[in-house]
Simulated scan of single mutants.
Amino acid sequence: MSPRAVLIGPPGSGKSTVGQLLADRLGVSFRDTDADVERTAGKPVGDIFIEDGEEAFRALEAEAVRLALAEHEGVLSLGGGAILAEATRELLAGHQVVYLEVGLSQAVQRVGLASARPLLVLNPRSQLKKLMEARRPLYEGLARHTVATDDRKPDEVVDEIVRGLQP
């Protein structure tokens, strides 16, 4: 059992929107590991960060990714920082990993500067820039396909992903 596609990328890259559309197009289900973490913890990601800390969140996230990669046959969207865990990067080997690439200005527009995202609390634009720069090499190294999302409609991104997926 293996997901048809695993979407990775920074906040604002379109993983949730594109992931749901891609799943619909492929006739499979969509799963988001952030939603899995929230279901397990019984609270939103932001609350986990505040109440339990980033380390606790990352442990829940790593387990959510491990389970989803083992159980899910549809389209899987990973939280933007899931790729920080070496164990997760190892588990992604051999999967159809698609990196949704986004530029800073479009990511800021999509995420919004009044975001409830815990890693973007202080100076969101600067934090997002640092986060994107630090993670870019990991995203690129894991991806079988990189799809630029700037100035593109979600359906256009899905079209490109579908063309790039191996049967």
Rank of each mutant, 00 (worst) to 15 (best):
L7V: 11
V75G: 05
A93C: 06
I161P: 03
H145E: 11
A68D: 10
K153E: 15
G141A: 02
E55W: 03
V65A: 14
P167F: 13
K130W: 02
F57E: 05
V147C: 12
A35D: 15
S16Y: 04
E51H: 09
A23L: 00
S16H: 05
V65H: 08
Q106A: 10
S77H: 05
K130D: 09
A114T: 15
D155S: 15
G9D: 10
M132Y: 13
E90A: 15
G42H: 04
L165M: 10
A64R: 08
R89H: 07
A82C: 14
S13V: 05
H72R: 04
L100V: 09
E38H: 10
A85R: 15
S77V: 05
D151P: 02
V28Y: 04
Q127R: 14
A82W: 03
K153F: 13
G81K: 01
A116V: 06
A41G: 02
L22G: 07
E156Q: 15
T17Q: 12
A116S: 15
V75P: 03
K15V: 05
R144G: 15
V111R: 00
I8K: 02
N123K: 12
G141K: 04
G74T: 12
R163V: 04
E61M: 06
A114C: 08
S115A: 02
G94D: 01
Y99V: 09
